[in-house]
Design a protein around this nucleic acid. Structure first.
Length: 436
DNA sequence: TCTGGGGTCCTAGGACCC
DNA sequence: TCTGGGGTCCTAGGACCC
């Protein structure tokens, strides 16, 4: 049996742990650049603020409804996530951390009342971290996810699901009749893996609820839809198609991109941004002990400014030899940028993606006659190690490649973050103060 | 005026091969 | 008017997730 444990309104809940005055108020956390809502308290949801809604559209609620908007504080959320995950991991033989705020727990073969156990675990997590969570249980990942969705909805909308399913919902422990009631009240689009496009196509075919979908035969569905949907259906029927991934898998690509705080026209500013993002991607690359075989640069204008002329380009630069050396990766990224750049556009965003990743232990060497012509300087592993150690110890950006423009104060492409709370748990000078 | 970032997987279509 | 069949590999783009 699998459980899916998920933090309620996770980012908002993290903020509330350190600012109890936020309880009971409509709170939203904004994406980078203070762009749109990415986490909302129940009070904010009740005001009609949508997931992903642009801040400028509901900014007036700050005055009229007492909405509190905060800039995303990912350093805080990441640290809180570690605490929650570590606690949860102690209660099951298997755990897959699926995202910053949710994990699967594997109770395979374990006896006992899982609903009672998970209610106790919930209370423990709340007491020790301050984060409220909901739990879904089921024999497959998709059913555990669905149980979790029902557990959360039952808490917020008591008219829709029985109150008995609130907070902890075990789909594997219900009678077929009870399940039928829940599945008839649930739309297909609410199922994990069925997005808006597929949901619309299913609706057009007369399939509206989970019950409707379960009435179909997987093989017949394959004729009209993808294997993805077929798999989802089998999982809903109770046949596991998605394995629990206990071990943390190395990423297959690593990306770092940002929208700018203000649009950028000149190449030198873009070079700074691309150098910065390539450096950050390189740090992530080394952290997972991989090498990159290619560097992709992406730049685009602001698609929302419809009166502006639009442009979007990606450019991939293959590397003669895979590397994790920041300077080489930055050089490749900047070369790509210069190839992709055309003057005269108002650029709003650039990104760097490291591709063709491989384990650092399996480096493919060059044939000697290729290298002999213009042999590149060797990688500087010890230098990279020292850089990472310094930045870890003294803070991000303590030591950086010069082309990032780190020493230039007026980098107007840097994102806006006007309402960020302190990084209470990870920075000595931002620790919360307790007054007696 | 202001609209996020980082991933994965699947599919269709083109290039290429025999 | 007629113009093979079967396969692999790669890539771009779409859909989805949080």
């Amino acid at each position: 049996m699998l459980a899916l444990v998920d933090g309620n309104n996770f980012y908002v809940s993290c903020e509330r742990v350190f600012r109890p005055s936020l309880f009971g108020r409509p709170v939203v956390v904004l994406s980078n650049n203070d762009g749109c809502a990415i986490s909302r308290s129940n009070e904010a949801k009740a005001l009609g603020i949508r997931m992903g809604q642009p801040w400028h559209e509901f900014r007036h609620l700050e005055r009229t409804a007492g909405v509190v908007a905060l800039s995303a504080n990912f350093e805080l959320y990441g640290d809180m996530s570690h605490r929650v995950m570590a606690l949860l991991g102690r209660h099951a033989p298997g755990q897959e951390v699926y995202s910053i705020d949710e994990c699967f727990l594997d109770f395979q073969g374990l006896p006992g009342d899982l609903v009672a156990l998970m209610r106790q675990v919930r209370a423990e997590v709340l007491q020790q971290t301050g984060i409220p969570v909901c739990v879904g249980l089921g024999p497959t990942k998709t059913l555990a996810k669905l149980g979790n969705h029902i557990a959360k909805s039952a808490e917020r909308k008591p008219d829709r699901y029985p109150a008995s399913q609130a907070q902890v919902c075990h789909l594997g422990a219900l009678s077929p009749r009870q399940r039928q009631v829940l599945f008839t009240a649930t739309e297909v689009g609410e199922v994990w893996g069925i997005g808006p496009q597929v949901a619309a196509r299913l609706n057009a075919a007369g399939v509206h609820t989970v019950s409707d979908l379960l009435a179909h035969d997987a093989a017949a569905l394959r004729q009209r839809f993808s294997v993805v949907l077929t798999r989802t259906l089998r999982e809903l029927q109770g046949t596991p198609c998605l394995a629990l991934e206990d071990a943390v898998q190395a990423r297959q690509q690593i990306k770092c991109s940002r929208s700018f705080g203000a649009s950028v026209l000149d190449l030198p500013s873009l070079v700074e941004a691309v150098s910065t993002f390539a450096s950050r991607a390189a740090e992530k690359l080394r952290r997972q002990a991989s090498l990159a075989g290619a560097v992709q640069v992406y730049l685009r204008t602001n698609p929302f400014r419809t009166h502006d002329e639009q442009r979007s380009r990606t450019w991939t630069t293959p590397l003669a030899r895979p590397t994790d050396d920041t300077q080489r990766l930055v050089q490749a990224a900047v070369r790509g940028l210069e190839a992709a750049y055309t003057a005269g556009y108002r650029y709003a965003k650039v990104g760097v993606t490291l591709l063709d990743l491989q384990a650092a232990t399996h480096c493919q060497e060059e044939l000697p006659w290729i290298a002999s012509g213009n042999a590149p300087a060797p990688d500087r592993g010890p230098l990279m190690k020292a850089m990472d150690a310094m930045n870890q110890r003294y803070g991000k950006g303590t030591i950086a490649v010069a082309s990032t423009g780190a020493t230039r104060p007026e980098r107007h492409w840097v994102m806006r973050q006007e309402r960020r709370t302190p990084r209470y748990t990870t920075q000595w000078d931002e620790l919360p103060e307790v007054r007696a």
